Each structure stands twice: as C-alpha cells, then as structure tokens.
Amino acid sequence: MIELLWNGPVSEAKMAKYIEYLELHTEQRVFDVGCGCGEMLIRLRERFQVQGTGIDSSFEHIAEAKRRAEARGSAVRFVEADAQSFQIAPNSFDLAMCMGSSHAYGLGSDAYRNAIKQMIPLIVPGG
C-alpha cells in the first residue's frame, strides 16, 4: 500500500481548495494525466459524481488507485499507460488535468507546453 495522497508537492489544504474552485456537474468527464494513486479523481467522483479516467505509467500507483477506488466504492477508471501514446478521441472530456506530471509529455522547458498542446484537443468546446 502506498501512503501518499498525491505524488506532487501539494498540501491537503491546497488540494481541497482546488476541488472547491472546480465547477463540475454530475456525469461530466474528467481525465487525469499522471494520476498517481488516484486520490484527486476519487475525490472528484465523491464530491461531484463525475466520470473519471486516470492514467499513470507506474504499475504500483495504478494498482493503489484501483485499490482505493474499490475500497471507497468509487467508479473511476485507472489505466497504466504512457501519456504520449495513450489513444483518446478528441473532445472526450470536460476537464483534463495534469497536476505535477507535465514530465509525462517530455522533459525540460518544453514539458509544460507539450502537455497543454496535447491535452487541449481532448477537451470539449467550453470545457
């Protein structure tokens, strides 16, 4: 079992504020790149009843995410996958996020730009 709530350097209080600021609605679709142990998606599912898909390249993190979701009765999909090769149709999600994981789209100064460039087409107009 992995004890971390999130893999990034984000406090519990800051994460709670992120969730509070979101204006999500039941059944909206959320995509989380570099989801780690899945805590953010699980909490979004618990609060807003969204449909969630999380990907991470770590088998251990995805296994932990699935364990947490099942233990809490949260219907969230977690997939071990590489962000750059994971196939998703355009306009598939209402929200795409990549918190502390822009390295999934490359290293160095272009990582953030690459993450935004590859994630924007995944979001529905107005998402």
Rank of each mutant, 00 (worst) to 15 (best):
G8R: 10
S74R: 15
E64Y: 08
T53G: 01
L22Q: 00
G106I: 12
R113E: 03
T53H: 03
K66H: 01
K66R: 13
A115R: 12
R67T: 03
R67S: 15
I62T: 04
R67P: 09
E46W: 00
E60D: 07
H103T: 11
T53K: 08
A96S: 13
M119D: 02
L22C: 05
E64D: 14
R43S: 02
K66G: 09
K66N: 13
A75V: 02
R68G: 04
L22N: 11
T53L: 14
L95H: 02
W6G: 01
I123H: 06
R45N: 09
K14G: 10
A89I: 08
H61V: 04
G106D: 13
G108I: 15
A65S: 05
R29N: 03
G127Q: 04
V10I: 07
V124M: 02
Y21F: 14
R43C: 01
E23C: 05
L44K: 05
K17M: 08
F48Q: 02
V124W: 02
L22G: 00
E46T: 12
S92I: 11
A71F: 05
P121F: 05
I62K: 08
E27R: 13
A111P: 10
R47I: 03
A115H: 09
G73V: 08
G73K: 15
Y18W: 00
S102Y: 02
S74A: 15
S11T: 05
P90I: 02
A81C: 15
P9S: 13
Y18I: 07
G127F: 01
R47G: 04
E80V: 14
F93M: 13
G126F: 09
I120R: 10
R72C: 11
K17H: 02
L44D: 06
S11Y: 00
E27T: 15
D110E: 12
A13C: 02
E80W: 10
E60H: 10
Q28V: 09
E20G: 00
D94Q: 13
E20H: 11
A115C: 14
Q28R: 06
A104G: 06
V76Y: 05
R47Y: 04
M1T: 07
E27L: 14
A115E: 07
